[in-house]
Structure formats: structure tokens, C-alpha cells
């Protein structure tokens, strides 16, 4: 891929990561927070892929989805709104 395109995609994805990380701390609903963390792990998997580390990308995607599933399982037990 063209190096400039890779740089632009990197900047876009890393900026998106910062936005998601700030959004997770502001969201009141626990279910939305878990889903946002899933989006975070998928985005950082794309960043690993751009940095030519497909091994880390596979691990990050699988572990992120697994942790999100476990979090949603816990949230279904304790309720969505926790002050």
C-alpha cells in the first residue's frame, strides 16, 4: 500500500481510538460501555494489521470479542444501570 495512505489510515484509526476511550468513560449505560470496548478492540486490531502484525491482530480481535461477551454476560446478571 502507498505509505501516505497507510499514514492517513493510522492517524484516522488512532484518533478514533482516543474518541472511543473518552466515550467509554462518559457513557452511563454499562451495556453501551461494553459494546464501545468491543469497537475499541476491533479498531486496534486494524491498527496492528496496518503495522504488519497479523499475529497480534488475530489475538486482539479474538480476545476483545471474548472479553466483550463475558462483560455482557455479567451485565445481564447485575443490571445495566450502576451508579
Amino acid at each position: 500500500m502507498n505509505p501516505q495512505v497507510t499514514d492517513l489510515l493510522n492517524i484516522a484509526f488512532l484518533g478514533f481510538l482516543v474518541v472511543i476511550a473518552i466515550a467509554v468513560s462518559y457513557v452511563k449505560d454499562l451495556l453501551y460501555a461494553a459494546i464501545l470496548l468491543g469497537a475499541y478492540s476491533v479498531t486496534i486490531a486494524l491498527v496492528w494489521l496496518l503495522m504488519s502484525a497479523p499475529d497480534l491482530a488475530i489475538t486482539e480481535a479474538a480476545a476483545g470479542i471474548g472479553m466483550t461477551t463475558l462483560m455482557i454476560a455479567v451485565i445481564s446478571k447485575i443490571g445495566r444501570k450502576v451508579e
Binding site: D55, A57, G66
Partner: peptide, 21 residues
């Protein structure tokens, strides 16, 4: 190839978790 025991194990475990869910 990319991947390995950790990622493959998580994928296999997630399939069983999805069945239970």
C-alpha cells in the same frame, strides 16, 4: 501462519460459549 494457541483457543472457547448463550 499468524495466530497460535492463545487466539485459536479463544475462538474454540467462544464457540462453546455461544452455544451456552
Amino acid at each position: 501462519s499468524p495466530g497460535g494457541s492463545f487466539s485459536g483457543g479463544i475462538i474454540t472457547g467462544l464457540s462453546l460459549i455461544a452455544f451456552s448463550l
